[in-house]
């Protein structure tokens, strides 16, 4: 139980996917202009991350590892994720209309989001078992969401301020991201400190 809590804290704070691991920077910079879009994107990412892990972990364990095909991981994982995203989109469109309206537009973008492929590969690399992988993916997705939603607030502030002209646009966004990431450094050691690891 302790370990799951540690995984959750790591994904959210110390090993935040966006701010500490640099995964999923494109949507972080591209879609974080407004709160509702960042919340929608985050929800879609959490959903796809957990489902992708739920599917790829068994494939890796019972197919690739068993038959010595581990070198095919990259190809298999990305294809499975791409197919999965398509499937989710189709099912959602048919049976979960309201959810599709809320999250649908973000789904195609997630296929090539390195955060999703990243979490799947990390689960395998770290040797997590099935429930651990699922929790880790969920935590990573939540961490992504936390960063997105926080940063949407930061960007809202930036837009109403006078910024030196040469920093307008992307440069100030990146520097703001640097400061947010810096603040997350404050969580370093929290897991060891709580005696979770």
């Amino acid at each position: 139980m302790k370990f799951y809590f540690a995984l959750l804290l790591m994904g959210l704070l110390t090993q935040n996917f966006v701010l500490a691991k640099f995964l999923g920077i494109c949507p972080f910079l591209g879609v974080s202009k407004k709160l509702d879009t960042s919340a929608g994107m985050s929800a879609a990412v959490v959903l796809v991350m957990v489902l992708a892990t739920a599917v790829t972990w068994p494939i890796n364990e019972f197919l690739l590892e068993k038959y010595d095909l581990a070198y095919l991981q990259t190809i298999v994982f990305i294809l499975v994720i791409a197919a999965l995203v398509q499937l989710i989109e189709i099912v959602m469109k048919k049976y979960l209309k309201p959810l599709y309206k809320a999250l649908g537009i973000y789904l195609p973008l997630i296929t090539t989001n390195c955060a999703v492929l990243g979490v799947v590969i990390l689960n395998v690399d770290n040797g997590y078992n099935y429930p651990q992988s699922l929790v880790n993916s969920f935590a990573a997705g939540l961490g992504f969401g936390l960063a997105m939603i926080m940063f949407a607030g930061v960007r809202g502030r930036i837009e109403h301020n006078d910024i030196p002209k040469f920093l307008e646009g992307l440069p100030i966004t990146l520097i703001a991201a640097a400061l947010v990431s810096l603040s997350f450094l404050g969580f370093t050691g929290i897991i060891e400190g709580m005696g979770l690891m």
């Binding site: 040469f166 440069p171 990146l174 520097i175 640097a178 400061l179 990431s181």
Partner: peptide, 22 residues
């Protein structure tokens, strides 16, 4: 050391972007 940490990465990229924009 901060430059080697993630936050330094964002910062360097931001500054470089400002320079190239200019």
């Amino acid at each position: 050391t901060i430059m080697l940490l993630p936050s330094g990465g964002f910062f360097t990229f931001g500054v470089l972007m400002a320079v190239t924009n200019r």
